[in-house]
Design a protein around this nucleic acid. Structure first.
Lengths: 325, 325
DNA sequence: TTGTACGCGTTATCAA
DNA sequence: TTGATAACGCGTACAA
């Protein structure tokens, strides 16, 4: 129909007919159907799937923002899916997304084995893994420098003179916690005297379980004088525990913290830019979508760097007291 | 084709042919095209658009989670769009979403006038506004009890014995800040002596501008002894300023805070459940989609309640010191 | 400049 | 039980 040409901005339409078409469009509130358009044109959906395990973690909101900043200028949008860390949910959602001809998937995987994604990749839907490397699969991933960040933070604790350093994180199956433990141990290898295997502990993953674990450590006969916390929730719990027990515990942890300078605990935190992870993942997805065969380009592993941020103690009088007193 | 019937689980297919179809499907990695399917069936996209002004605000992540918890069991998904508080971007995104036959839109509007949404509504796409009521439009909305929360928190400051209470928020065009100012003034009407119009101020919206504004107030000849902060960023800045100047300022504020008990400032915060807003908005969207005419059901205004949370001062020795010393 | 025919991938309907 | 045909709304190619 001529209407199609008019709306497409085709020059071969009389000004008169164009006006008539536009008037009619306005009258009936016509909007062209993008689904039908995509079907005819062989387009994909213009949607990028983002699957996350825990939307409450502000990390994922920042991640989404980074992705959006790259894909929105191309007219693409983010479909946000919450897997609740359930592998079955993750698989089902991936299936539903691919049948909608999604442009690509950015996945923070729940499970340790990602082989089930192979058919999705060979079917032409690019997948980029976030925060964990692929296992049993050749796919792109964007990681945080978990090992280096943990090592650097631990070395800072040693430089501060810590003599008994503990480690608290999530149980081993979680890849990031494992890497952070490796980084911790690497730093400690230079000062084995400060390392007591009994001070390497794990907790459930929420703030409260971390708090209880740290309280238990602090009330022990030989409490640590410093603690490395493998994730943000752990750090929150540790800070609460240190204040609650009146301990002088010095804390290192992954993920930066709002108001960290005011919590009354000496801290060194591993900071990184979650938006940068999103930007890198989205860019890789776009690059991958432009290549036809999945193996034109070898799978890449992009590592986002970390930095340390120190927080001393701010006294009630407003002096920054870096000596920890 | 018989393949369609097989995949649809139609009973009128021989076990033999069914097996042959499934084998072929497996061999070529066939996935049915949901876009074509929707076109034929007259379905909508199964997507709900969520447009937010600032993804970095954790409020929106919680909101998305609440929405997802209601729509995911129905097979729907959230399309997340970041408007960056730009009205033009908001309008463009809404246009792009409606052409994709989106099931509905949940919008945290950037501007004050929402009349431009009327065609979208009459075209049959339900819209629910979040956190701000519609202006120039008959549409559903889900609000926080901004007025009541602000009033309650201010009354708590008065009950604590505050004698000079300031107000800091975003400039008037922001509806929520206006409501919170109304609530503040309502509470103060019972104690006009504590009210000094010179202590009602506004700032830009980020933590740093709030901090500077509060430092200025505290260094004034007649500083406030308590401050109501109209949003979360404001509260963060105020807490920093109070600690930095060594002031005994007591702070009330909207939005709860992580580690609020440790920041060394006596606080009363207005808390609410952002997930509940999301659930309510999604439920309303679904209800609206089930009614054909836009006016079968009158537009509703759902208000989510708030609660107060008090934080005293925790001394370094671990005592909770509710007297503020 | 405008209208007609066809096909994108799928399913409803009817014929075989 | 299976295969053929038409149609969902749109855009391309060609005819008028």
């Amino acid at each position: 129909m001529t209407a199609s040409r008019t709306l497409a901005g085709d020059a071969r339409v009389t000004a008169g007919t164009r006006a008539r078409v536009l008037r009619a469009v306005d009258a009936i509130g016509y909007r062209r159907n993008e689904m039908a358009r995509s079907l005819r044109l062989g387009h994909t959906s213009g949607l990028v799937g983002l699957l996350v395990t825990n939307l409450r973690n502000p990390f994922y909101a920042e991640l989404a923002l980074g992705i959006d900043s790259v894909i929105a200028p191309r007219g693409q949008k983010v479909v946000l899916c919450h897997t609740a860390a359930e592998i079955e949910t993750e698989r089902r959602l991936i299936g539903e997304l691919t049948t909608r001809r999604i442009d690509g998937i950015i996945l923070a995987p729940a499970g340790a084995d990602h082989a089930y994604l192979a058919p999705t990749l060979t079917a032409g839907t690019p997948v980029v893994l976030i925060a964990r490397p692929p296992v049993g699969l050749a796919a792109d991933c964007v990681l945080v420098d978990d090992f280096g960040g943990a090592r650097d933070a631990t070395e800072r604790l040693l430089a501060w003179g810590a003599e008994r350093i503990g480690f608290l994180g999530l149980p081993p199956p979680v890849w990031t916690s494992g890497e952070r433990l490796r980084g911790f141990l690497d730093a400690m290898s230079g000062n084995r005297g400060a390392l007591d295997p009994a001070l390497i502990r794990h907790h459930d993953g929420n703030v409260e379980s971390a708090r209880q674990a740290v309280v238990a450590m602090l009330r022990d006969d030989r409490p640590p004088d410093a603690l490395f916390c493998a994730n943000g929730q752990t750090t929150l719990g540790a800070v609460q525990a240190a204040r609650e027990t009146g301990s002088d515990l010095v804390v290192a942890g992954f993920d930066d913290l709002e108001l960290a300078n005011l919590v009354g605990v000496r801290l060194v935190l591993v900071a990184y830019d979650p938006q940068e992870l999103g930007r890198q993942a989205a860019a890789k997805l776009i690059q991958r979508a432009q290549h036809v065969g999945p193996l034109d380009l070898p799978p890449s592993r992009i590592v986002v760097p970390t930095t340390l941020v120190e927080y001393g103690l701010v006294s009630r009088q407003g002096r920054a007291d870096a000596a920890g007193g």
